[in-house]
Design a protein around this nucleic acid. Structure first.
Length: 464
RNA sequence: UCCUCAGUAGCUCAAUGGUAGAGCAUUCGGCUGUUAACCGAAGGGUUGUAGGUUCGAGUCCUACCUGAGGAGCCA
C-alpha cells in the first residue's frame, strides 16, 4: 500500500523519522531506514531513505528525483504506470530541497550518480518548498556574496559538504595523533585578562561591572603552565584575532591546535610538527578520497607530502628569495609572495627556522651561538597556502624573560604567574600552533579559507 | 587602514549617451532513461543610494553604501 500524507503536526516526531515499526509513510513495517552511504550494502533490498530533493528531472511518465540525505546522493526512479496516481504526481511536483521519504528497491545502475538507484515503491512528502519562494541556490553558478549570505543553505551543496567532511577528518586526525603520542588535552581559556603577545589586536569583551576581558588569540602561555604540570599537552579550540586582514587566508575566528612539550627544544618541535602533518595528510588521503574527488583536488600534490621536509634557515631563505628577485632584506618578515616563492622548489612543506629576534614574540629562546636569532620555526605549506605552523623554543631563564618583558613594554604584573613557571622548576620547553582552516584549505585545494568552516567570521562578515 | 575592481529581474550576466535583454529559477503545456535533461509559452525591473552634467544617463562626473581581490599583519 502506498500513500502520500502530510505531517499531522508542525514538526517531525521521532516515530516518523526513525521508526520502521509504524506504517505512517506507507512502508511495510519491516523496511529498514538506511543512509545513502550504506546503499551499496543493501543492493537488491527494499529500504527507506529520508532526505531532501537535490534535483529532479522528468520526462512525461517517468521522473528521476535525486534525493540528498547528508551522507550522499541517490537517484530515484518513479514510473507512472507502477505507482498510484497521487504518489507519482506528488513526486513529479517536488520542488528543490523539499523534504521527503521514499521506499523502494536498491539496484546497481551505472548511469546513476553513485552507481546505485532506487526504484520507488512509495513516498511521503514531509514539507514541499512553496513555488512562490523557491530554494535560492539553484544548480547553476552563483556569486560569493550571494552564497555567503546563504551560508546556512550553501552547506547543503556537494562541494561545501566535501570540505566540511575533510575538516572533520583533519580535526579527528589531529586529536588521534596527540592522544596516541602521550599528549594530554588541557584546554586553555577563551576569556583572557590580557594579550598573550603585545602586538596583535584583541577583541574586547565587557565582563560584568567595569571589567574588560579579551578573546584569546593563543593558548600558548597557559599551555606552558600546563606542560610544567602534565609534560606533553595540547589545547584545541577557537582563536580570535581582531586584525583587519582582508585576504583569502584570514578569518577573525579560527581553530588552532597548540601542543607544548616540557624538556623539549626546537628540534623536537620540527620533528613533531612534521610527523603530525604527514599523519594528517595520510588520514585525509585514506578516508576522504571521495570528497577530494568532488573538490577536484589534484591528489598527487598531497601524495608527495612525506618526511623529511626540506629544512632551511631564515638566512638561507632570505638568500634564496633575493636570488629569485624578491626585495626582502635580512631582518624583514616574509610576505605572501615570498612564502609562495620559497615553497615552489619542493613538492612538500618547507621548514624555516632561526628568525631575527626583532620580528618574533618576546618569549622565544635565543640561539646559543647567535643570540640575534630566535629559536622559532614556521612551516609553509606548498601551492601558496602559506604558513600553517608557527612555533619554537620558549625562554626558560627567569632573568632573560624579565628583560624581554621590559623591552616589549609589557605590564609586569599581568605576567607574574607566567614568570612563576621560571621560578619553580623551569625547564627547556617548546611548542607550536597549527591553524586548522589553512590546513583544510590546502587539503581541499580551496581558493579561500572561508569554505573550510561552517560559519566563517571575517572582517566584514558575521552573518549568518 | 591603504590600493584596485564591481553593483542591472530571485540567481549569473548582456545592453556605441538614444524603446531594459538573455540563460537559469518559477508557473502552464509536451516528452518512459534523464545526467546542471530537452522543446514550446507566460509572469517577473525605482539599473546600490543621493546629487550633478546633458535635449536625453544603466552608460559620463562627485560623494556615500555594499561586496570582491590584493597589500600590510598573522595561523
Amino acid at each position: 500500500m502506498s500513500t502520500i500524507r502530510s505531517p499531522k503536526r508542525n514538526g517531525p516526531s521521532m516515530n516518523w523519522l526513525r521508526s520502521s515499526m509504524n506504517n505512517e509513510t506507507g512502508a511495510a513495517p519491516s523496511v529498514p531506514v538506511i543512509t545513502i552511504a550504506e546503499a551499496a550494502r543493501h543492493a537488491g533490498e527494499t529500504v527507506r531513505l529520508n532526505g531532501w530533493l537535490y534535483n529532479l528531472r522528468k520526462s512525461g511518465k517517468i521522473v528521476f528525483p535525486i534525493i540528498r540525505d547528508g551522507s550522499g546522493l541517490m537517484q530515484c526512479v518513479a514510473v507512472k504506470s507502477n505507482l498510484p496516481e497521487d504518489v507519482f504526481e506528488a513526486l513529479k511536483g517536488l520542488t528543490q530541497e523539499s523534504s521527503f521519504t521514499v521506499t523502494g528497491k536498491i539496484r546497481a545502475e551505472q548511469r546513476a550518480i553513485g552507481g546505485y538507484e532506487l526504484d520507488v515503491e512509495s513516498a511521503a512528502i514531509f514539507q514541499r518548498v512553496p513555488e512562490d519562494r523557491p530554494y535560492p541556490i539553484t544548480p547553476k553558478e552563483h556569486g560569493v556574496d550571494f552564497l555567503m549570505d546563504h551560508r546556512h543553505l550553501w552547506l547543503r551543496s556537494r562541494r561545501q559538504h566535501a570540505a566540511i567532511r575533510v575538516r572533520h577528518e583533519v580535526i579527528k586526525a589531529i586529536r588521534d595523533y596527540f592522544d596516541s603520542h602521550g599528549f594530554t588535552l588541557v584546554d586553555t581559556p577563551i576569556f583572557t585578562p590580557a594579550a598573550c603577545e603585545g602586538t596583535t589586536t584583541l577583541f574586547e569583551v565587557d565582563y560584568f561591572e567595569d571589567e574588560k576581558v579579551y578573546l584569546t588569540q593563543s593558548g600558548q602561555l597557559y599551555n606552558e603552565a600546563n606542560a610544567m604540570a602534565f609534560g606533553n599537552v595540547y589545547c584545541f579550540g577557537p582563536t580570535f584575532r581582531a586584525e583587519k586582514s582582508k585576504t583569502r587566508r584570514h578569518l577573525t575566528e579560527f581553530w588552532m591546535v597548540e601542543p607544548e612539550m616540557a624538556y623539549a627544544d626546537l628540534e623536537d618541535v620540527k620533528r613533531v610538527a612534521e610527523e603530525l602533518i604527514v599523519y594528517i595528510v595520510g588520514r585525509v588521503l585514506e578516508n576522504r578520497r571521495e570528497e577530494l574527488k568532488t573538490l577536484e583536488r589534484d591528489i598527487s600534490k598531497l601524495e608527495s607530502v612525506k618526511a623529511p621536509f626540506p629544512r632551511i634557515s631564515y638566512d638561507e631563505a632570505v638568500k634564496n628569495l633575493q636570488g629569485k628577485g624578491s626585495e626582502i632584506q635580512w631582518g624583514g618578515d616574509f610576505g605572501n609572495t615570498d612564502e609562495t616563492l620559497l615553497t615552489e622548489d619542493w613538492d612538500r612543506p618547507v621548514i624555516i627556522d632561526r628568525y631575527p629576534t626583532e620580528i618574533k614574540g618576546f618569549y622565544f629562546q635565543p640561539d646559543a651561538v647567535r643570540p640575534e636569532l630566535a629559536l622559532g620555526v614556521d612551516i609553509i605549506a606548498p601551492e601558496g597556502y602559506g604558513e600553517i605552523v608557527g612555533g619554537g623554543q620558549r625562554i626558560h631563564d627567569l632573568q632573560l624573560l624579565e628583560k624581554r618583558l621590559e623591552e616589549h613594554h609589557l605590564p609586569r604584573e599581568a605576567f607574574e604567574w607566567y614568570l612563576d613557571l621560571r621560578r619553580f622548576g623551569s625547564v627547556p620547553h617548546a611548542g607550536f600552533g597549527m591553524g586548522v582552516e589553512r590546513f583544510v584549505a590546502w587539503m581541499c585545494g580551496l581558493e579561500h579559507v572561508r569554505e573550510t568552516i561552517a560559519y566563517p567570521r571575517m572582517l566584514y562578515r558575521t552573518r549568518p
